[in-house]
Design a protein around this nucleic acid. Structure first.
Lengths: 73, 73
DNA sequence: ACATAAAGTAAAGTATACTTTACATTATGT
DNA sequence: ACATAATGTAAAGTATACTTTACTTTATGT
C-alpha cells in the first residue's frame, strides 16, 4: 500500500456548491476541519467511508471527486 | 467517523471473474490475504486507494463493489 | 481416506487516517 | 487600517487499516 496516489476535486466542488466552507463540509461529513484541509491538499487519501460521505454531500459519485493515479503499473 | 458502514461484493466478483482466489486478488492489488479476508468479511472497510485497486482489477466502478450504508441520517 | 489448496481465526506489531490544540497567514468587509 | 472569517501549518495523540506469523477448518481431487 504505497503513498498518496489519489487526487481530488473537493476544492472545486466546494465552490460550485454554494460556497461551502471547509468547516461546513467537515461538519456535514463528520470530521474535523484539519482532515478536510489535509485531504484537499493531498497529504493523505481519505478512508472509503469518508470518500462516500463527501461524494454524497456533493451529490456525485466517488470517481467524480477522487481520481486514482497509478504509479506502479 | 463511525464503524464499518460499507458492504461489498468482492466475493461474488471473485467468482464471476474466473474463479480468482483470495491470494490471487491480494497479489494483484498489493495487499496480504488477511486484508482481503477481513474486507470480504466486512471487519473493516478498505482505504480508498485499495478500493480503487480492487475496482480496477474487476473492471468496475467503486460503487459497483462497495455500498455505503447510512446509519446516522 | 488421504493429500493439498483455499479459506478462516487470532493476536501482536506497523503504517496511516483522523483528532485535538494552538498558533500563523491570507482573504473579505467596513 | 482594522476586525473577523477562512485557510494553512505543525506536532502529539488516538483510531483504524494493514502486515506478519502461526495455527485451524473447510473444500476439492484422486
Amino acid at each position: 500500500m504505497a503513498k498518496s496516489e489519489v487526487k481530488n476535486k473537493i476544492r472545486r466542488l466546494r465552490f460550485e456548491n454554494g460556497e461551502m466552507t471547509q468547516q461546513q463540509l467537515a461538519d456535514k461529513v463528520g470530521v474535523t476541519r484539519q482532515t478536510i484541509i489535509a485531504i484537499e491538499a493531498g497529504k493523505y487519501s481519505p478512508s472509503l467511508t469518508l470518500a462516500f460521505k463527501v461524494a454524497r454531500t456533493f451529490g456525485v459519485k466517488v470517481e467524480d471527486i477522487f481520481q486514482y493515479e497509478d504509479e506502479s503499473s
